[in-house]
Write a protein that binds this DNA or RNA. Structure first.
Lengths: 214, 214
DNA sequence: CTTCCTTGGGGAGTGCCACTATCCAAGCAT
DNA sequence: ATGCTTGGATAGTGGCACTCCCCAAGGAAG
């Protein structure tokens, strides 16, 4: 299929597809002649994945490129590859190690991981972006005078762990390795908007249950 | 205190504070004379809240202004006011009602709400941004050939409901109304990075538990 | 064959956003 | 009185995700 058809079937404007091609988010089509290129179903699928990451997952273009690099990298082990997407996700600014709130938050998060027995996560604290994000968020709460300690975080963490178990269980229902990888990427990136939306819906439901529509 | 001191105590550059003043995110200081303004602890607190929303919550400046408008609006009822923050949060593009995937996703989400007995949320579907976000995300999965149906979503929704219960329980431990409102805003906006980070940490933990560091 | 429309590649431009640098006049300190 | 500091206003910056436009090559119609 040609660029125009790829555009029509995906709903993405041709100019944007050209931009993605230039940015390396999409492999070039098979060159038929100097002025014509041919794209196949795999291009269409990849394009839809890219669009979903950018529009639903709000992932920056540069990050999409990085994530796709991991998807296509057959040399990686499974856990690494499954994690690669998450690790490439948008990062909070590097926390300032000298800041007292950051230090307090680090202690608090460390205590949380101990309490939960998350040994593996604990081993990854020096490099995991998720750990750093958590520390920054907890520090922001503390700066505003709210104590977001390990006791309060633990029940949330417990619920998130069950969510992660669901994620991986769902992933394992997919037979092929290629499908699993793509599903893991989607699980890491697109699940978050789903969870966020469900969380907000649940807040609306629970708030109105408690207080009505006053 | 003067602008320079406000800047020093908050860690926000003076130029940025001036920008926030211009954008109406911060009330002007008490004018001492034509060339001096005085700021108090309340300004500092508000500035830290604004920074947390923007940097940790990634909330756009225009949205922060809107949210703060609700925070300061004493005329609103409690549920409305608690929800106002969430409703103002960044929106996904308006779903295209004619798209078949959107329609399928709407049916699926409707079935989910029925199954869960979330009557209040169901009444809000026409206007709730959270509902629309969920529909868009589910549609994105379907477009890629993954069936993200009510049966799969239900356990996630159940977990998110428990999370919302924790949110509101925590909020109710705060005695003063003003503090509750601020905490609700923070709960709606800053909790999400916390949940997201916990979710990713849990995925890392569970992935390595199942597959090791291969 | 020639005219004209379409196509794909590439560079430059756009619009938005969160700042940020500069300028200016008024205060204040010395 | 001189010179540094302060706060307000305006214009500029840099990053990002597109999006516009031009050009030359194909292909189709007459």
């Amino acid at each position: 299929m040609r660029l125009a058809e790829l555009s029509e079937r995906s709903g993405v404007p041709t100019a944007t597809i050209k931009y993605y091609l230039r940015e390396g988010l999409l492999a070039p089509g098979r060159q038929i002649n100097a002025r014509t290129a041919d794209y196949d179903e795999e291009h269409l699928r990849r394009l839809r994945l890219v669009r979903a990451m950018i529009q639903v997952g709000r992932v920056p273009v540069a990050t999409v490129r990085e994530v796709l690099g991991h998807v296509d990298d057959d040399s990686l082990g499974r856990a690494i590859r499954l994690g690669a997407a998450m690790w490439a996700l948008p990062q909070v600014p590097e926390p300032d190690e000298d800041d007292e709130y950051i230090q307090a938050a680090q202690r608090e998060v460390g205590a949380l991981l101990d309490r939960l027995g998350w040994e593996n996560a604990k081993r990854l604290t020096t490099i995991s972006p998720a750990y750093r994000s958590l520390v920054v968020a907890v520090a922001a709460f503390r700066r505003l005078g709210y104590d977001w300690g390990a006791e309060l975080l633990a029940p949330y963490a417990e619920l998130m762990h069950r969510t992660a178990v669901l994620d991986l269980d769902n992933m394992e229902t997919h037979p092929s390795q290629a499908e699993r990888i793509e599903f893991a990427i989607l699980g890491a990136i697109l699940n978050e908007p789903v969870l966020q939306a469900l969380h907000r819906l649940a807040q609306e439901e629970e708030t109105t249950r408690r207080y009505g529509f006053e």
